[in-house]
Amino acid sequence: MSEIHLQIDGKEVVASEGMTILDAAKTVGIAIPTLCHHEKLEPYGGCRICTVEVEVRGWPKLVAGCIYPVEKDLVVRTRSEKVDKIRKVLLEEMLAHAPDAEELQALAKEYGADRDRFEKEPSFCIHCGLCVRYCAEIKKKHAVGFVDRGSNREISFIPEIASKECWDCKECFPLCPTSALQAAYVLAESLIPQPDAEVSSCSCSCSCSGKSGTGE
């Protein structure tokens, strides 16, 4: 594998092909904050908290460090005024969803993010996708997934799969940077069909557990 020379925060770094900026920074002990990154999972680039400034042929641009592959003669700045501001605003937005998450609060302290800047909408999920990807990539059970889109997007367990697979696994619980996942599981648990219970009268596919499916 060929060696790639690049510069991170003024330090000369030798990386190999296929590494990301995040990997390369780790080898020289430069910490880039991450929320959606997990060693065992494919890079995702969902939370953008790892945003760094790179200079390609003299042109600066902002990229996600966890998915951007290293290039020859790349100049990377992991802390700059621009980068810090982006991380601060991202944290403030995430804090509107999960104001008491410890990981977020630690980062907020470092970047001076104000947890009350945006109106709170405590969904407790920051859409890092760790649970969804862990279940799909490592466990290959696909018990939890995203539903809906845009501002309504949320994680949701598939009750039929969760009832069979989750009770003795729950490996995704400690991954969650907030605690949204456990709440979602508790909600799904109430939908898990009991073998002796009456069959739900509603045949809709929206997991509404028998509430009227029409006219809503």
Binding site: C135, A136, H142, G145, D148, R149, I158, I161
Partner: peptide
Amino acid sequence: VPMSRIQQIASF
């Protein structure tokens, strides 16, 4: 295809 994938698409 896993059900979670279908739900994601169908709700998207």
